[in-house]
C-alpha cells in the first residue's frame, strides 16, 4: 500500500498557521524506513523539528528539497508501507 508521509497536522493542532523550511532529508528513493526513524528536519523560528516516519516501508519518492517551505500537512515522502 502506498502512502504519503506528511508533517503531522496534530503538531500544535489548533495553531496550524506556522511555516518552516526543510533543512535535511535523511532518506533516498528505494531506501527502507522504520517506524520512529528520523527522516527529515524542518527548521521553524523556535526550533528544528526532527520528523519521524509513522510506519515501516520503502521510500518511493522524495517530495521536497532542502529550502522548501512547508507546514502542517505538507507531504515529504511517498512510501510503500509494509503490512
Amino acid at each position: 500500500m502506498e502512502s504519503i508521509i506528511t508533517i503531522p497536522v496534530d503538531l500544535w493542532p489548533r495553531r496550524g498557521g506556522w511555516r518552516g523550511k526543510v533543512i535535511s532529508i535523511f532518506k533516498k528513493p528505494n531506501e527502507r524506513v522504520e517506524k520512529g526513524e528520523p527522516i527529515a528536519e524542518v527548521e521553524i523560528e523556535k526550533a528544528v523539528l526532527v520528523i519521524e516516519s509513522p510506519f515501516d516501508g520503502v521510500i518511493r519518492e522524495v517530495l521536497v528539497s532542502p529550502g522548501d517551505s512547508v507546514g502542517p500537512g505538507s507531504g515529504l515522502f511517498k512510501v510503500e508501507v509494509f503490512g
Binding site: 508533517i7 503531522p8 496534530d10 503538531l11 493542532p13 489548533r14 520512529g36 528520523p38 528536519e41 527548521e43 523556535k46 526550533a47 528544528v48 523539528l49 526532527v50 520528523i51 519521524e52 509513522p54
Partner: peptide, 26 residues
C-alpha cells in the same frame, strides 16, 4: 544553534488532541 525537537506522536498524544478539541478547551 537551535534546539532540536523530536516530533513523536504516540497514542496518548493523539488522545489528548481528541479530548481537548472535543471539549473545546484551549
Amino acid at each position: 544553534d537551535k534546539v532540536r525537537l523530536r516530533v513523536s506522536i504516540n497514542d496518548r498524544y493523539a488522545s489528548i488532541v481528541k479530548l481537548v478539541s472535543g471539549l473545546k478547551i484551549a
